[in-house]
Every structure is written in C-alpha cells, then in structure tokens.
Amino acid sequence: MIYSYYPGCSLHGSAKEYNHSTKAVCEKLGVELRELPDWICCGASSGHSLNKILEIVLPAQNLKIAEKIGHDLVVPCAACYNRLKVAKNELREKEEIRKQIKDLINFDFQNNIEILNLIELIKNRIGLETIRSKVVKPLKGLKVACYYGCLLVRPPTIMDFDNPEHPMSLDEIMRVIGAEPINWSFKTECCGGSLSLSRDDIVKSLVGNIIRMAEEAGAHIIVTLCPLCMENLDIRQPNYNFPILYLTELLALAFNLKESENFITKHIVNPLPVLESLELL
C-alpha cells in the first residue's frame, strides 16, 4: 500500500516523536508513506483567522502536489487534516473558489484523492484484524482516555468520519491492542488550541479540566492524534503528572517495536513509570 504523506510543521518540530512513530508503525504494517515533496504549512488557525484566501490557498497548494502524484494522502496531525479537508470541501462545493485558486496557483482541482487521518487509515484501509495480528505485547491493564479533540470530528458535515459528540473509532483501536478505553465525557472538549502561545492561563484551565476528568474516570494515560492537543496537555497541565501519548506510540508498544524507546521518552510528562508499573515495557 502506497500513500502520500503530509507530516505538517509540528511533526518536523516539537512532535517529532509522532512523525517517527507513525513511520515505524506504518512500516511494520506494510504501508509505504511517501512524504509530499515541497509541502507547505497548511496555515493552521492563523490562516483562517486572518485571511479567507490564505485559508484555502495554503492547503490547496498541498492538494495540488498530492493530486498530481495521485495517491491518497495520509495526514496524522488533526489540525492539518481539518484544514486540508475544509479546503477540499470548499473547492468541491464552490465554483468561485475553484476559479480563484486556479488563478492564484494554477491548480485545476480534480477531486481524485482522499485525505485520511490515521484512524481512517487503520480502520478502513489496513483493517483492525491486521492490527490484531501484529500485536505482540497487548497493553493489558492500561486504562486509556481516548481524546479526539475538536478538529478531527468537527465540523461533522465536512470531517464526516465519526460521531462529533461521542466518537468511538479510537476506542475500538485501543481495544484491539489490548488496552482498556474508559468511558468519559471530555472526548471532544477543546484544549484551547493556538491560545497556548497567547493566553496560556486559559489553556491551563481547560487542560486542567480535561486531565481531571480523565483521572476521575480512572484512566492511566490520555491518547491523542493531535500535536497541538499533545503540546497543550503535556506542557500546560497544572499540578498533575499525567502522561499523554500518541496513538502511534501505543501501537508501537503493542507491536513491541524496538524504536519505541526513542519516542516515548520525548514527552515532558514521563510515561515510563505508569508503563513499567503495568509491566508493559
């Protein structure tokens, strides 16, 4: 299976462990990820906040490269996934947008590729049975709070991938690798997103609530697919020591990949004590 791969800026920066674990896990699963040549930043929340043309043209430039190559596009970062899908939707729905983008970057939108987040790649393309067959070390006893955040599931008409209030797809994957997803009500609460750099007081309060809810529900760790959520939850948690890991880091542990030690040691909150106490290392 060959896919185009859009890592996005975070995965080349503070979320390197997400990039590395995604690549390691995909390799194990026989999925070849080919990084888009000359991909550019999707604009994140700053693009759509300040300029409605930039909001579309930055992701569209990447779609242009991806459409030319022709493979479906895998996007691990929830924020990039959201921006690319929104842009694709606008291009599909609105002729005036297609025209504007054609004028700006000479891109004739073909709508010939799918954009996939990692849950979609795993569930719909690779299949949960294949995942199960690769599990060497089931994550027995590990209670996980599945944190989907905002951008993967909303707006639901465009993301169109799981229930926006009570998604379950990540929970299903957790079960397949032997972990126990807990029931909690903060699966899709906002972590404060890009306010991290400007109003960290607000982010700390939102993150505090999310962690408290996960802890009260009995979770040992929180699992996420979003590098922005990771950053906020990992570095802005007040008076907690609650480990946060990416989906791909847990998959790597369950597959017993030797590279695991390179990624799971990269977080501010060290997950090793919890994993060691459950004999998962």
Binding site: P155, P164, C190, G192, G193, S194
Partner: peptide, 9 residues
C-alpha cells in the same frame, strides 16, 4: 474564539 466548532455542531 478557538474555532473549536462546538457551537456550530
């Protein structure tokens, strides 16, 4: 506004 889309949903 963080554009979290909770309201719109």
């Amino acid at each position: 506004c963080t554009a979290c889309e909770t309201c719109g949903t």
